[in-house]
Amino acid sequence: MEKPAIHLTPIHPACGHVHAEPRSGRAGLWIQGLFLFTAVLFFILWGRREGFQTFSIIFSSIVLEAFPFMLLGALIGGLIEVFAPREKIANLLPNRPVLTIFLAAGLGLIFPVCECAIVPVVRRLVKKGLPLGAAVAYLLGGPIVNPLAAASTLAAYGMMWKVAMIRLFLGFAIASAAGILMDMFFTREQAILPENHVGCDGCHGSHDGGGFFHRLRAGLVHGAEDFFDIGRFLIIGAFVAALMQTMISRDLFAAAVGVPVFSILLMMVLAVVLSLCSEADAFVAASFRFTGMPFSAQMAFMVLGPMLDIKLVLMYLSLFKKRAIITLSALTAALVFFSLLVMEYVSL
């Protein structure tokens, strides 16, 4: 019997959106091409220099650590696409939007996903009708409100439960608040890219039919395409983060330990720049303890890192419109900053 073909066409008949190059026009194509060319040129010209070798190691490390998680996220996303009907997901969600947001912010506790895997998963869930606020809450909360992040924080801070609890609580509270605020500021259509809208999966619903293995194959193809589409954002982010790590001395950040406000801000900048995984950043934050860095600033680093960094912001380009990304980034940074400032002055 002939297998039903999996057709993925550039224009979706239901929504009429062109899936081809949704965000990047000719200019974007040129910029990305130039970026790629420059990276290869630098590799050829400076490959043997010590500074460049350090950069290469850091860049490769970030990519190697993130890729399996991203592949896993793409796989989960692909399987959600073919095996989870829209109606089933809608039935699972509570009727009250705020409750959905709280649930999504804490979902990482039972469904832990790191920041590199979460974007493809949320992208697919959004296509299945997950509300904007809940998507934002899971996107921000998933990588931090989870058992792995708690365990790494405990290990880094010598089993200090208070530190791990504060980190998880702040992660949950900030993710929920960001979700609620994004829901207030944007409609789905205003925030989410057209190709991620409900009913715009580009598949003509072809996997409604066919047996298990056909659907599995379709899920894998979806996953592979997500990886192919989003992968470059992760790589550009990892490249920039590695460049920053190679060029900027961490000691500069440790020098500003005197004023908590500046310390918090600087550690937030460092979290964005370093783009570490949520498991590792607790250890880097803990290494600042001996420099006299205020605890609130260390916590700012641990809370913001999994929510907002260079590679994450670039990966958001595959899900949100630019205005929504800017608002979400500013909101997240502001919420982290003010929460930690309050914590500093109430001396938790």
Partner: peptide, 9 residues
């Protein structure tokens, strides 16, 4: 190293 060379202390 905790996870990868990027977090090396």
């Amino acid at each position: 190293i905790t996870c990868c060379a990027a977090d090396a202390v």
